[in-house]
């Protein structure tokens, strides 16, 4: 079976910390920062569990500010 690996890149300064990507992620890859804030004072989203990412792009699809880039590699 091919192994699917994904990765997300988040534009942290564009993120408004709305939490929608965290809710949409089926693999619990994302979470909002609990302490750190970005240049506009929001707790931005971060990939706290990057190994679990399958590159399904659900986070990028629901992100209202278009700050997530998703990558996917299928290893055969």
């Amino acid at each position: 079976m091919p192994k699917i690996t994904g990765a997300v890149e988040i534009d942290r300064d564009r993120c408004k910390g709305c939490d929608l990507c965290v809710v949409a992620c089926p693999c619990s890859v994302l979470a909002l920062e609990t302490h750190d804030v970005n240049n506009r004072g929001y707790h931005y989203a971060a990939d706290v569990n990057p190994e679990a990412c399958i590159g399904c792009a659900a986070c990028a699809t629901v992100c209202p500010d278009g700050c997530i880039t998703v990558y996917r590699v299928v290893e055969k």
């Binding site: 590159g55 278009g66 700050c67 997530i68 998703v70 996917r72 590699v73």
Partner: peptide, 8 residues
Amino acid sequence: ENVVAQRP
């Protein structure tokens, strides 16, 4: 080359 979703 691996991008599947990005900002339009």
